[in-house]
């Protein structure tokens, strides 16, 4: 296998961190410690991990309402993410964004976005910046979105733009089979969403999104192409979300237990463990020490979020603009 030992450790750490962050956050949300809706991405660890393994802080990603995995893969800190979900002043966005709006511009993370499809052109814009500045080789844009989002016009406009302008973009479609309760076989008029790519003049690749090695390889090629100035690539990552659309959603109303069991059997973390142990690339001891440290990290994140202060009420009025001459107060 053509992956360094450090990278393998990073991949396992990242996938396990996503898994445990989502499980912990869901538990905390059901306990009432989150202030709003929370969408979990456990089950879908492989796509963000396998893709972001090739990125640095200078590369940019756009994300979705189901964005925690993207954030973690891009190196955001789980303390600040949990605090954001809890609406605290120490949160990644000072408690003003919440679960669906976590961003870290210092890490190349353009923000989770709650309007389906809305972040897709942002990654295209980041790639445009790179092209204009002549730094494509070190700064590409990756746009994460779902099967549902592939029906938005803005995706199609963005794909055409990226191709016409030959921008360093990766369109990363995480096809988890559902948009809310609606199955993709109903809402998407193609067997593979990746087939859309052909019409826009870019390679479209179907990838097993439950296999992080497959994602790593496909993303490596696409990102190398982008860095070399050869333009955009479309990756369709077939994956599965283990939990409901959002924290209170009951999947038994629209998914069959056999289907859920089928994907759990393909679990990307288990698959990784089996593979590295069989090929003697990592030891069980090492895997366990990574898991143990993540457990500690999660305890810390919850502790940190619980003990953090609420934002000052005056922050409601901050940051609407850089500069604005009228008072921003409500009329009371």
């Amino acid at each position: 296998m053509d992956i360094s030992k450090e990278k393998l450790e990073w991949i396992y750490t990242t996938m396990y961190r996503i898994r445990r962050f989502e499980e912990t956050m869901l538990e905390q949300t059901l306990k009432g410690n989150s202030m709003g809706v929370a969408h979990t991405s456990d089950g879908q660890e492989a796509p963000p991990t396998g893709i972001c393994a090739h990125l640095t802080d200078k590369d940019w990603i756009g994300s979705t309402h189901r964005g925690h995995g993207h954030c973690i893969s891009k190196g955001l800190e789980t303390d600040k993410m949990m605090a954001e979900v809890f609406g605290k002043a120490t949160g990644q966005c000072g408690g003003k964004g919440g679960s669906m709006h976590i961003a870290d511009f210092s890490k190349g993370m353009l923000g989770a976005n709650a309007i389906v499809g809305a972040s897709i052109p942002l990654a295209v814009g980041a790639a445009l910046t790179a092209k204009l500045k002549g730094i494509e080789s070190e700064s590409v844009g990756v746009s994460f979105f779902g099967d549902g989002a592939s029906s938005q016009g803005v995706l199609h406009e963005s794909m055409n733009l990226a191709s016409v302008w030959k921008l360093p973009v990766i369109f990363a479609c995480e096809n988890n089979g559902y948009a809310e309760a609606t199955p993709s076989w109903y809402a998407v008029s193609a067997e593979d969403i990746a087939s859309r790519a052909e019409g826009y003049g870019m390679p479209g690749v179907v990838v097993d999104g439950m296999d992080v090695f497959a994602v790593y390889d496909a993303a490596g090629e696409a990102i190398a192409r982008a860095r070399a100035g050869e333009g955009p690539t479309f990756l369709e990552l077939k994956t599965y979300r283990y939990h409901g659309h959002f924290h209170a959603d009951d999947t038994s109303k629209y998914r069959k237990p056999e289907e859920e069991a089928y994907y759990k059997n393909l679990d990307s973390i288990k698959h990784f463990e089996r593979t590295v142990l069989k090929q003697k690339l990592m030891t069980e001891k090492k895997l366990k020490s990574i898991r143990d440290s993540i457990e500690q990290e999660m305890l810390h994140a919850v502790e940190f979020a619980l003990n953090s202060p609420m934002p000052d009420i005056s922050t409601l009025y901050d940051d609407v603009y850089v500069n604005y001459s009228n008072p921003i107060l409500g009329l009371r």
Binding site: G36, G97, M310, I313, V320, N326, I328, G330, L331, R332
Partner: peptide
């Protein structure tokens, strides 16, 4: 007039109630 302020809606519950 008693209105919301000229801001987007914040996430934090207290800020949201203030909004």
């Amino acid at each position: 007039r008693v209105t919301a302020p000229h801001t987007p809606v914040p996430y934090n519950r207290d800020l949201e109630q203030e909004f």
